[in-house]
Design a protein around this nucleic acid. Structure first.
Lengths: 338, 338
DNA sequence: CTGAAAGCGCTTACAG
DNA sequence: CTGAAAGCGCTTACAG
């Protein structure tokens, strides 16, 4: 009954076979580009397919072949441009390699994450790359491996189990940022925004170590927590401006919180770079044109996505390779904010 | 041979049937929640499935049933938070309705767009929502309809053919923005950024009409083109600041160009809202916490995405309904930039 | 209430 | 070089 509205959907290799006066095996073979078929025959088949408006049914082929060209990509927070850039990198690499991406956004919701994971499993995904939602159990990689689905974890590490992981050297990155501020003469430096998870712990540690290396104390009131978002950064800066003695600089949990901080500063007629030094983390594209442009730690977000795609494809190609670990090397990029 | 690494993949309803001592038809029926099966039997089947670690193979089911629960979503520019928000809205609505999304990013590349469209067709997508890449031929909706795949076009309209469309009233929105600036006493108002496509034409027209309604001439040198991005907005503002007499206000092509303009202003130690009035378009989440917060035209990006999802589902449910058109009603939201 | 059989659109040994 | 047959994991009339 779908026939009239979907004219081409109903035509199969069987129709093509009849039209070209060959068997359906032959049609299948030429569609796969086999060289076992004589040129003339192949030509005839291709013409028949074209004439009939035949379209390959990849799902049927994959069912028979027990394969899949779909990979699942699970993102925790697409509203953060960092993750949007990561996603773009993953998608580009995957599509260029002939995969197609099943994408899901969890919004840090564990329940949603579980549902989409199940869904991808039912759909027979060839692999999954996940930026885990906050609170994801460390057992996840083992569980997915038990399903027989290759997995790469991104950005947020999940304990010390063995799994493929692509992220950045957070501790070192923040250490570099703080050291830069220290070298510029700042003595009251805050750590602005963010609040929980492995990434937070790593970045905070980099901050603490840099201060300690400079013989400076780590003061609780200079570490202000917030949601890892613009509004969060705005609030964090607002409270940070009230501690006394007032800090003269801060390294931010990430670029997005830094952007919020920039806004809070502006509201008080303060300008980052002259009245307060600020450095972010990620080097999101927007950082080059914020007001003012943001000094930050560059971890090349879209490249991170590409690395994850490559790691996943490597594991799909050979499930037995040893676990892969890629940590982007942080680079300090100086702009006007600090 | 995949058996050891993918333990559960190989178990099918046949195994469950044997374990539960029923036929595979019965298993299928209970998996579908049919009430034709006695409770005791159903219970036994469910236990067997659980015990064996059975996982439903949805692709096989869909092949047999000639159905699909995947919908394709094609986005032109994920680096623009507007589209990221749209995507999030689409995804949420679709996943909540039991669909799964095949996502592709074209990066305004027509060739890529064609490839992913084909790919989605091969995968038997139940429907597609597309934010068309710049330069997409107006014939696209007709073509996809000929494939038998429900389609909804988003954000950028594609000529006057009949197809489902979800977008915003661009002309009216910009008209409102410009009128606001006019009412505030500005007489030299620029139109900043953007450069081509239906959306651009519509927004520019709103600008022109507002000026005309106020008896003001539309001056070529106050309309400065740019890429629809932060760097684009930055450049556009930089050149706009050089025209003389210098305009005192501008309506921007979209929020992202406005953000770039904010940065250019800052670089010259000018502040939007006091030295120059700026209003954006979209009301992206970031607009509330830019430096300074951006006055803009709110078209509720994520709601737009949800509307598109709803329109697509309606069309899938009934391919014969008449064409759907949803235009978000623009609302002026005043913040500090103008 | 449950089972046997056919079939969705492909691929892949196996013959010839 | 090409065809006939079996099968991927399901669903769905059709019997009983």
């Amino acid at each position: 009954m779908q026939r009239d509205s979907t004219p081409n959907r109903s035509i199969t290799i069987l129709h093509v076979a009849k039209e070209a006066k060959v068997s359906k095996s032959t049609v299948s073979l030429v569609l796969q580009g086999s060289d076992r078929i004589r040129d003339a025959t192949a030509q005839r088949v291709r013409e028949a397919a074209l004439a009939l408006g035949y379209v390959y049914n990849r799902r049927a082929a994959e069912l028979r072949r027990q394969s899949s060209n779909m990979v699942g990509v699970i993102i925790n927070d697409l509203m953060n441009p960092f993750f949007a850039e990561v996603l773009v990198g993953i998608e580009r690499k995957l599509v260029d390699a002939g995969y197609i991406v099943l994408m899901a956004h969890t919004h840090e919701d564990l329940d949603r994450q579980r549902r989409v994971l199940l869904s991808m499993r039912e759909q027979n995904a060839a692999g999954i790359v996940i930026c885990p939602a906050l609170g994801t159990p460390n057992s996840l990689p083992k569980e997915v491996k038990a399903w027989g689905i290759p997995l790469v974890v991104m950005v947020r590490s999940l304990g010390s189990g063995s799994y493929d992981y692509v992220g950045s050297d957070n501790e070192r990155g923040v250490y570099m940022a703080a050291s830069h501020l220290l070298a510029a003469g700042h003595r009251h430096i805050g750590f602005l925004g963010g609040q929980s998870g492995a990434v937070y712990d790593q970045r905070l540690r980099g901050y603490a170590k840099a201060l300690e290396a400079a013989g400076l104390p780590v003061k609780k009131n200079l570490i202000v927590l917030s949601a890892p978002s613009r509004p969060g950064g705005w609030e964090a800066m607002t409270t940070m401006l009230q501690v006394s003695p007032r800090p003269s600089a801060a390294v931010c949990y990430n670029d997005v919180t830094a952007f919020g901080a920039l806004a809070a500063l502006g509201e008080k007629s303060l300008r980052a770079g002259t009245d307060f030094a600020l450095v972010g983390f990620d080097n999101v594209l927007d950082a080059a044109h914020s007001n003012p442009p943001l000094s930050t730690i560059d971890i090349r977000p879209s490249e991170l996505g590409e690395r994850a795609a490559v790691a996943l494809m490597a594991r799909i190609a050979n499930p037995k390779i040893k676990h892969q670990l890629y940590l982007a090397e942080p680079k300090l990029v100086l702009r006007q904010s600090g």
